[in-house]
C-alpha cells in the first residue's frame, strides 16, 4: 500500500472571466516509481479533465514540464513522488506568461531569447556540399556539447531572483548559450560583438551570483563556471576597450 498523497495545485484559467486564482487539492494513492507525470495524468483523467499542464517527452529530455514543485522549479516528469513529502504543492513557473493552471508560455520567451543572443553560427563562409567537413578536435566538440545540452526548460530563469525582479534580465540560459558559441570556432563573431549582446546589466553584469540557476538546472549544466568565465571575459573586454578608445 502506498502513501496517500495530497496535491495542492494552483488553478487559474485567464480566459474564463469567472475564474480566479486559487488552489485545488487532490488526493491520490502513491504507486511504485510514481513520477509527477504519472500522478498529474491520473488526476486529469480520473478527477478533473480541465486541469492544464504540459508534458511531452515525459523522459526529461524536452524541457516541457518545468513547474514549481514545493517551492523549487524542476522537471515534473523526472520527479519521483517518493522523494517528496505527503503533501505536494505545484505552481506554474514564474516569469513566464501563464496560459492556465500549471501551463506557461515558454515558447515565445525562448524564441525571443534566441533572437536576442543570435543563437546560431555567424559566418561568412559558404558550404561546399561536396568537400570534407571542417575538422574539429573531439575534445572541443564534447565541450561544446556540454553547453548545448540545455533543454530550455526555464528552471534557471524561474529560480533566479534577478530575473524575477527585473524582466529585462536575460537569464543564465541565454548567457550559457553565448558561452556555447564563444567556444565554437565556426562562429566568427568577435568578442566585441558578443559584448554588444551581453556586456550589459541585462546581460552578464546583471547577474548577482545567486546561483539558484546552478542549483536547479535539471540538466546540471555548468552554469556557475560559465557565468564566471563570461564575467571575466566581458570585464576584460571592457577594460581593453576603455584603454584603446577612452
Amino acid at each position: 500500500m502506498g502513501r496517500n498523497l495530497k496535491f495542492n495545485i494552483f488553478r487559474y484559467n485567464p480566459l474564463d472571466s469567472r475564474s480566479v486564482p486559487h488552489t485545488d487539492s487532490f488526493s491520490l494513492e502513491e504507486t511504485d516509481s510514481m513520477t509527477l507525470f504519472i500522478a498529474l495524468t491520473r488526476i486529469r483523467e480520473e478527477q478533473d479533465p480541465s486541469l492544464q499542464f504540459d508534458f511531452c517527452c515525459r523522459a526529461g529530455i524536452c524541457g516541457s514540464c518545468a513547474m514549481v514543485i514545493n517551492g523549487r522549479p524542476g522537471l515534473a516528469c523526472k520527479t519521483l513522488t517518493r522523494e517528496l513529502p505527503d503533501e505536494i504543492t505545484l505552481m506554474p513557473l514564474p516569469v513566464f506568461k501563464l496560459i492556465g493552471d500549471l501551463s506557461v508560455d515558454t515558447g515565445t520567451w525562448f524564441r525571443a531569447m534566441n533572437e536576442k543572443v543570435g543563437s546560431w553560427i555567424h559566418t561568412d563562409k559558404t558550404l561546399d556540399p561536396d568537400a570534407h567537413e571542417e575538422r574539429m578536435d573531439n575534445a572541443l566538440a564534447e565541450e561544446i556539447y556540454e553547453l548545448e545540452r540545455c533543454v530550455e526548460c526555464g528552471c534557471c530563469v524561474a529560480s533566479c531572483g534577478t530575473a524575477n525582479m527585473r524582466e529585462d534580465f536575460v537569464g543564465a540560459v541565454a548567457l550559457n548559450r553565448i558561452a556555447r558559441f564563444m567556444l565554437d570556432p565556426r562562429d566568427q563573431r568577435k568578442e566585441r560583438e558578443y559584448f554588444e549582446v551581453i556586456g550589459t546589466d541585462e546581460g552578464i553584469f546583471g547577474c548577482m551570483g545567486l546561483l539558484a540557476c546552478e542549483d536547479v538546472c535539471p540538466k546540471e549544466l555548468p552554469l556557475q563556471d560559465q557565468l564566471g568565465i563570461l564575467r571575466r571575459k566581458m570585464g576584460w573586454s571592457a577594460v581593453k576597450h576603455l584603454f584603446r578608445f577612452g
Binding site: A112, M113, K116, V170, A174, F205, G235, A238
Partner: peptide
C-alpha cells in the same frame, strides 16, 4: 527578459561593465 523586439540603444557602451 522582456519580450520586446525593440533594438536597444546600446550607446551605454561599456558603462555596465565599468560600474560592475
Amino acid at each position: 527578459m522582456a519580450i520586446d523586439t525593440t533594438i536597444y540603444d546600446r550607446s551605454s557602451g561599456v558603462s555596465s561593465a565599468i560600474l560592475d
